[in-house]
């Protein structure tokens, strides 16, 4: 208890002394003015020298580097853009030419096809005509033949009939004449 009491008194005494010394603004106490000015000059000179000799050139070079790079990149981009535009134009013209060519090819092909078809049709028509003619001819021939055949068959049938009915074969020439007469009459 006594110790604590002593401590409090000591503290109070110390505090009073400090407060007395600190009356007013410490800034106006010139005791440490030279020291502060001196250290300020020393430390600030140090910073100034380091900043002006090392750091500012470094930052500046880096900024310049970046600016250069950006400018170069922009230029390159511009160049590439122009080039790509050129290429696009070329491509478009190529496509245009291709389209024209394709149209031409289509038109040509169509014409050729038409011609081909026409020709084929003509050929076929000619062939059909020929065949028809030959068929007609054949039919006519056949008709003629058939008439002759019919007369001979009828002669035979007639002579046979006569033979069967009368027991003797008739005269061939008279049968023929009779049949031809009948054919003429019936106008076959």
């Amino acid at each position: 208890m006594k110790k604590i009491f002593c401590l409090i008194i000591l503290c109070a005494y110390y505090e009073r002394n400090v407060l007395a010394a600190e009356a007013g603004m410490p800034q106006l106490d010139p005791a440490y003015w030279p020291s502060q000015a001196f250290w300020l000059i020393v430390i600030f000179s140090l910073i100034y020298i380091l900043i002006s000799k090392i750091f500012i050139p470094k930052i500046k070079s880096n900024l310049d580097l970046r600016e250069d790079k950006i400018r170069k990149d922009l230029e390159e981009a511009k160049m590439l853009k122009e080039e790509s535009e050129k290429k696009l134009k070329k491509y478009n013209s190529l496509i245009q030419a291709g389209k024209i060519e394709v149209k031409k090819i289509i038109a040509d092909g169509r014409e050729k096809l038409n011609n081909d078809i026409q020709q084929k049709r003509r050929e076929i028509e000619e062939k059909i005509e020929k065949e028809t003619k030959s068929a007609e001819k054949e039919i006519i021939n056949f008709k003629k033949n058939s008439i002759n055949k019919i007369s001979s068959i009828s002669e035979e049938v007639a002579s046979n009939l006569v033979k069967d009915i009368f027991g003797e074969s008739p005269n061939a020439s008279s049968v023929k004449a009779t049949i031809s007469q009948i054919v003429k009459d019936s106008k076959i």
Binding site: A31, Y32, P34, S35, F38, W39, L40, I43, F44
Partner: peptide, 18 residues
């Protein structure tokens, strides 16, 4: 008297930080 003070210390700390 050019003693190193707390003011000098904080100047130095600022400088070091910079």
């Amino acid at each position: 008297d050019l003693s190193f003070t707390n003011a000098s210390l904080f100047m130095l700390i600022s400088a070091v930080l910079i």
